[in-house]
Simulated scan of single mutants.
Amino acid sequence: MEKLERLRPIRCFFFGLCCVLVFVCSLSWNVMKNSPWHPRNIFICDTHPAENIVFPPVEEPDVRLERMLYPKPETLKPPRTDVLTITPWLAPIVWNGTFNSDILNAQFHKRGVRIGITTFAIKKYIRFLKDFLETGEKFFMVGHKVNYYIFTDRAQDIPNVTLSEGRNIHIINVTAYQRWQDVTMRRMQMIRDQTYTRFMNEVDYLVCVDVDMRFYGSVGVEILGDVFGTLHPGFFGASRAQFTYDRNPKSVACIPVDEGDFYYAGGYFGGIIEEVYKLTNYCHTAMMTDKAIGIEALWHDESYLNKYFLYYKPTKVLSPEYVWNNYYGSPRAVQIKRFIGIDKDYKEVRFRR
């Protein structure tokens, strides 16, 4: 009995402490009921958002399109069965007959894309620029906003060509290197630098091509993608062993004989600005790495481009329709020749001023 009397104060203390804790917990529960840390909000999934949550206003995109009539695509009847139309990594290969230009144009017009095209008219190659621009106005991205970026050492010789509305010529003055090999290899550096300082603010897509070419057929938004390369007209039906990759194991451009998907042409590539920057930066850096140890890749910038596309797959591949050369004749698979190299005396334009 005496022992119980001694414990009475202790029991009273704990009873009072419990009452205080119950009061504090009750008060805290009510205060926190609107807090995200309230147990009810942590452990209970409420399908209805709290009334006091205010979402920022979101501008609804205008997704309305004009009514369009065209033949229904047939799942069991592919438009082309004579050529490969998709890569093993699911990138489309663009051939004539595999796309609908009207659908693509409607989509790209809705997005209001701006397209840039680069070419190098250096030394005697300035003579090809007029034909390049005039045929470009007839066939390249007709109806879309286009910036022609002309890299040249002869700005005073740029021809006067009438352009359609929304299309402009921009002249970029560059140094004319003594050797044509240096001119072609330095293209990657020049495109990279301009992409970072200028192109990223002016266009959404960049198409990089040679100037000694002329457009013969429509080249439209079907070519555009994150990053694209073009099948070389001389090797689109060749085996790996026939590809003229650089095989020097000391070169960054080296591709072993048991590797390789396609052989890509060095004079036709592009994509969104970010991807073109990555591609050109890689190629230029690789060239400078080789140059530091006295190595020059077999086919210069084309060799490094092929190395890049082997390990960083393009998201779209263009058929040789887009960079044809009449030297290769008229194979049945090439139904249309959209962009063709001009016959010329290479020694005369490359080695004589």
Rank of each mutant, 00 (worst) to 15 (best):
V142H: 05
P88M: 11
I93M: 12
P79G: 08
L76K: 14
L69Q: 09
R67S: 07
N100F: 12
H109F: 07
A121M: 03
F120L: 07
R114D: 00
P78W: 13
L90H: 14
I126H: 10
I86T: 14
F128V: 09
N96S: 15
I103C: 14
F132P: 02
F108D: 02
R80T: 02
I117F: 02
R80W: 04
G143N: 01
G112E: 01
M68Q: 10
E66P: 11
I93R: 13
L76N: 14
Y125S: 12
V83Q: 07
M141V: 01
V83H: 09
A91L: 10
A121T: 00
L90P: 00
M68K: 09
P88Y: 13
L65V: 12
E134D: 02
N105M: 14
A121K: 04
R114G: 00
H109M: 01
A121D: 03
R64N: 13
I122E: 03
K130L: 06
P71V: 05
L65Q: 11
V94G: 07
W89K: 07
N96D: 15
T75M: 12
K77I: 11
L129G: 02
R114Q: 10
T98N: 14
A91W: 04
V142Y: 01
I86Q: 13
N96A: 14
G116V: 10
G143P: 03
E134G: 06
R127I: 13
F108Q: 14
Y125E: 01
I122H: 06
L84F: 07
I115W: 00
K110S: 12
F132W: 06
I126Y: 02
K110N: 03
T135W: 03
Q107Y: 05
G116P: 06
W95G: 00
S101K: 15
R67C: 06
V94R: 15
E137Q: 14
E66T: 13
F99H: 12
F128E: 01
K130E: 15
T98H: 12
A121W: 00
R80L: 08
L84N: 10
T118K: 10
K123T: 01
R67M: 10
R114L: 06
P78A: 14
P78Q: 12
F99Q: 06
A121E: 09
P71W: 02
I115Q: 03
F128M: 08
N105A: 09
T85E: 08
